[in-house]
Design a protein around this nucleic acid. Structure first.
Lengths: 183, 183
DNA sequence: TTAACTGTACCGTCCAGACGGTATAGTTAC
DNA sequence: GTAACTATACCGTCTGGACGGTACAGTTAA
């Protein structure tokens, strides 16, 4: 007689995670609906129950990106070590939720996905402003590109689980470089 | 000898150029055989005469990449302004043949194309060595990532002919950054 | 009861590649 | 010198498979 609450949509998050993982590991091309459903341990019908179209799935992934991006900008603004140092450190691949959505979204951007490109442009602007406030407008771009380069290299090949042994030393040298730029 | 001299294979280069252009402008996904043939003004049959499979077409594009990469490394080693300054300047999008193959190949790398990834890794090593000889091993990575970041941003959206008005000033500030790193 | 699924069957489209045919330039036999 | 021949350089169409998406009937858990 008591109307039971409907059960939780466990598949929904699983599907999003699977989509994200496939984008990172095998790229946009291979992240098909069938592959995503299989990886999520969900039927294709179940997937389409939550995301009526692939575009809808992308849209929700971009919402997840937005949340992490906003949190990251806030953390960067409040970072005691300074925005630049925070930015470099956070640009290294650490398999955090933020890293994962970001790289996943990058795969979409590579396919020239308009909406994704717009988010990236907005994020770049935020980062650049914070960097300019930290190291000055002249050196901000240098630091920004350093971080982008770090991400760029993380994407190329280091997706499936490549080498990250000397990363520690790498970050150290980049932070030293930032210090020199800061004067 | 039997058989006559063949007519010139005009389609071959046209097809390669079209493939390159489509990779840059619309990404790997949309660079289909049909699209390439159409853009090259060649029939699909004609395309497949020269490149029996898509993989073969990619292989020839990668050969083109190799040639430009080797020439670029040589020019970088001999650059009077120093390897680092040359590297930064050459990392900005200038629509040169080298830029075009490089970005086109990047589109393939994004789809996790193994052979392409291997070439990039090799190129990175060469560049890093030259940079280390110029600005020292500690700062080499910083400069390398700056250049990569430049390319990364050129790819995301700025491919089809985005804004390059303030590029001049941008390069100036990056070169200034390099000078500071050089000590 | 109802939301949250599973499973299967199906459709239209697009893609890589196969295939058969044609055009043309040069070579050779006569 | 020209007809016959040959290798190359294409063209146009077709096919088999995969992909995004639809439809819908049944199952399970709150």
């Amino acid at each position: 007689m008591m109307g039971g609450m409907p059960r939780k949509p466990v598949a929904r998050e699983a599907v999003l995670d699977a989509f994200e993982a496939l984008l990172i590991e095998v790229g946009e091309r291979a992240a098909t609906l069938d592959a995503v459903a299989r990886r999520a341990g969900v039927s294709k019908g179940g997937l389409l129950y939550h995301f009526p179209t692939k575009e809808a799935m992308i849209a929700v992934l971009l919402e997840r990106l937005d949340r992490h991006l906003a949190a990251d900008v806030a953390a960067m603004a409040a970072a005691p070590e300074g925005a630049a140092a925070y930015f470099i450190k956070s640009s290294v691949w650490a398999d955090t939720p933020m890293d994962r959505v970001f790289v996943a979204a990058t795969r979409l951007a590579e396919v020239a996905h308009g909406e994704t490109l717009r988010r990236f442009a907005a994020a770049q602007t935020s980062w650049l402003e914070l960097l300019a406030a930290d190291v000055g407008p002249a050196m901000a771009k240098a630091v920004l590109y350093m971080g982008d380069g770090l991400y760029f290299n993380a994407m190329l090949g280091r997706g499936p689980g490549g080498p990250l042994p000397e990363v520690e030393a790498e970050v150290e040298s980049l932070l030293a470089a930032v210090e020199r730029l800061r004067r």
